[in-house]
Design a protein around this nucleic acid. Structure first.
Lengths: 243, 243
DNA sequence: AGTTGTATGATGTATGACAACTTGGAGGAG
DNA sequence: CTCCTCCAAGTTGTCATACATCATACAACT
């Protein structure tokens, strides 16, 4: 009963159906808005059971390639084929991977700081202030102030008025969060405190530039802050390898 | 038989199961590496058929929250809950939306140009040259040289050696491609030619900076190029509204 | 001890039936 | 003739059952 087309790899039939259908969508054989064949038609065409077809449909839906309306059919969604941006890190967090992501952050946050300096509202300054205070408080309690740190950066991104900056920076943040925490955990006692205080000082410089509505100063301060971060990262890894 | 928990909205049972399971995963009740209950257990727990459970599983897989191994079970993937970055534009392409995306591009490509000026290989210069030639050729044939334009920018992104720059810029490019084409189609004849020649000149300036390994010059040239793009966009929309 | 066989439980697929929903058109009321 | 109602056909959503395939643990055999 089964056709020879996919007989080689009988495991994951649904996967094969997904591949072929999504291929035809991306290739433009099914254009956005088109109604693609009914489940029973696909069943006949591919020689698989409806179970498999439904599983495949489910995946296409999850990929936001199609949209199915109960009792009507499934349709190709407008803007199909645009894969979202994602960072495919290959498990191992190499130093180079982290630095690559940091380069992206430098690029984005430097510009974001400049834009925010022009556009920030008083409310933005207030939430920024709260983040900075929380940071200082956490440092005093010998905690890793990672959350407050992130909130500070995110507030600046939001102050640009361009939500894409905030979205992207948050995404990048979630990517390298677990690791930065590990890194700061490497340091202990005195060193850790001085390190965090220096970070705090850099944050204050950025904040000050935003208050003064000084775009170029903000850009430079943010760039310096993140480049210092990069250097700290390099050093941390070197000492880690030596121990 | 059915529990009251989701009886209100009997449509999309699978969706409900997905919500509850993904919620428990994000909430940390199921940690990465954990094996979550078998399909029959979930069937009993939620009072739905195995069909629904499998549909839910399928979506969780597609979302890369879990991974199922045949004959063993389904496990929570490490790094679950990190949604990829995507631009949620709501159909209508307002001017502000396009400018917001362009701001991102400015931020990224300016830095990319600077990095590429330091790191570019001779091969990079060659492919850049090819893109520029193709651009000029297309302009001579009165075609919209969008593809060649994009290839030029993408080559620079790749020359940074940081693949994330290339990935992101390509993503942004696919976002605003259809529209830029529309815009350049607005212009006709003489104006279009002078416009494209000016773009070509700006490209050449960037290229020259990359050859000279002059990071700051490359950064400024790229920034000027894209800011000009932004102004052209503003003008095009203004004239469009008047007609 | 080391290998093989087998039992068990898990996911993958097939099949048939019915429920819920949408749409379009037949048929009656005005 | 027009409009409304209602139903019938077609499609997706859900259920139930059975069997196939895979992975693992443990018993049995050499």
């Amino acid at each position: 009963m089964q056709t020879k087309t996919t007989a080689r790899q009988p495991r994951k039939l649904a996967h094969a159906v997904v591949e072929r259908l999504s291929g035809r969508i991306r290739r433009g054989e099914f254009k956005p808005g088109d109604k693609l064949p009914t489940e029973s038609e696909i069943t006949r065409a591919f020689g698989v059971s409806r179970t498999v077809v439904r599983e495949a449909m489910s995946r296409l839906q999850a990929a936001e390639l199609v949209e199915t309306r109960h009792g009507v059919g499934t349709f190709v969604r407008p803007g199909a084929g645009r894969a979202p941006f994602r960072i495919h890190q290959v498990g191992t967090a190499t130093l180079n991977e982290l630095i690559a992501i940091l380069e992206l952050r430098i690029s984005l946050e430097a510009e974001a700081a400049a834009l925010a300096a022009e556009r920030r509202s008083k409310a933005d300054l207030a939430t920024m202030r709260r983040a900075l205070d929380a940071f200082a408080r956490q440092v005093a309690q010998s905690k890793d102030a990672v959350q407050a740190d992130f909130r500070f950066h995110l507030t600046i991104a939001r102050a640009t008025g361009n939500r894409h900056f905030a979205d992207l920076i948050r995404y990048l943040g979630t990517m390298l969060f677990p690791r930065t925490r590990v890194n700061s955990a490497q340091l202990a006692g005195e060193k850790r405190a001085t390190y965090l205080n220096r970070v705090n000082g850099e944050h204050e410089k950025i904040s000050e530039a935003l208050e003064r509505r000084a775009p170029e100063a903000a850009r430079m301060a943010m760039r310096a802050h993140l480049e210092n971060s990069r250097e700290r990262l390099r050093r941390a890894y070197r000492t880690m390898l030596q121990s």
